[in-house]
Simulated scan of single mutants.
Amino acid sequence: MIHNKKILALIPARGGSKGIPRKNIRVVQDKPLIAWTIDEARKSKYIDRVVLSSEDEEIIKVAAEWGCDIPFVRPLHLAEDDTPGIDPVLHAMDQLPEYDFVVLLQPTSPLRSVEDIDGAIEYCFSKKALCCVSVCESSETPYWMYKVIDGNLQPLISNNEIKYVRRQDLPPIYILNGAIYIADCNWLKESKSFLADESIAYVMDSTRSLDIDNEIDFVLLEHYLSLRS
């Protein structure tokens, strides 16, 4: 709880991952991928309850073994390939209406720390924001990106007055890293998206912003974890 507001942490993990089958429970350094998120969420001094949203029996069993609450089973129609990501969040809030804020923590961000989680919550409340999402600085910049039309290069961003030649002269660019999404529950039920005009950005270090999407990402994760140990 923070500022007398009850905080629900939701970890979404469906069983039908296509890119990397069963990735949410794939073992990395003796821990299932989802356990890295469960462990950090349970350390939070603000989160009142950490719950799982899943339709998959094996994921449910693994999450329970690592201390995550499972107060409901996600309906199958909310675990399809084309299910909008916000729908399981709205479902969870309907099942647990007593919370004021929801914190969405995807298991594909295993390097996110409790300091990141609590830092984002503190920042959200310090700004009196209705929604806060985590971002990190991008290693790529749209100022050096192009479209190819009929074989010809065309700048993605047209700027005839300023030409950025040196990387150090480029303005910083930030991207969503998928690690933390925070929102007022009533606001989210109305907006049905974490990304709106009211959303503010919480900047995370890029070294903790790895998003597991393919096999190379698992190799990078193993490498990062080995450096930390």
Rank of each mutant, 00 (worst) to 15 (best):
I2Q: 06
I7M: 04
L8V: 01
A9P: 04
L10C: 01
A13S: 09
A13V: 02
G16T: 15
G16Y: 11
S17E: 14
R22Y: 12
R26G: 05
R26C: 07
V28T: 06
D30A: 08
D30Y: 04
D30V: 06
K31V: 03
P32S: 06
P32I: 03
W36V: 06
T37L: 07
E40S: 06
A41S: 02
A41C: 05
V50L: 00
E55T: 08
D56M: 12
E57D: 15
E57A: 14
I60L: 12
I60V: 10
I60W: 03
A63F: 03
A64V: 12
C68L: 07
P71A: 01
R74L: 15
P75E: 07
L76A: 14
L76H: 12
E80T: 15
D82V: 07
T83I: 09
P84E: 02
I86E: 00
D87E: 15
P88G: 03
M93G: 01
D94Q: 10
Q95V: 15
Q95M: 14
E98C: 07
L105N: 09
L105R: 11
Q106C: 13
S109Q: 05
P110F: 14
L111K: 04
E115M: 13
D116A: 10
I117A: 00
I117C: 01
D118I: 01
D118Q: 02
G119E: 10
A120Y: 02
I121E: 04
S126C: 12
K128Q: 13
C132M: 09
C136Y: 02
S139P: 07
S139R: 13
Y143V: 04
W144M: 09
W144L: 11
W144T: 13
I149S: 06
L153I: 08
Q154F: 14
P155S: 04
L156N: 02
S158W: 12
N160D: 07
E161C: 01
K163E: 11
P172W: 02
N177H: 04
I180A: 06
I182P: 02
D184R: 03
D184V: 01
N186L: 08
K189G: 09
K192V: 01
K192S: 03
F194P: 02
L195I: 15
S199I: 00
M204P: 04
D205T: 12
L210M: 12
N214R: 09
D217Y: 00
D217Q: 06
F218M: 05
V219T: 07
L221M: 00
E222I: 00
Y224S: 10
L227S: 08
R228K: 12
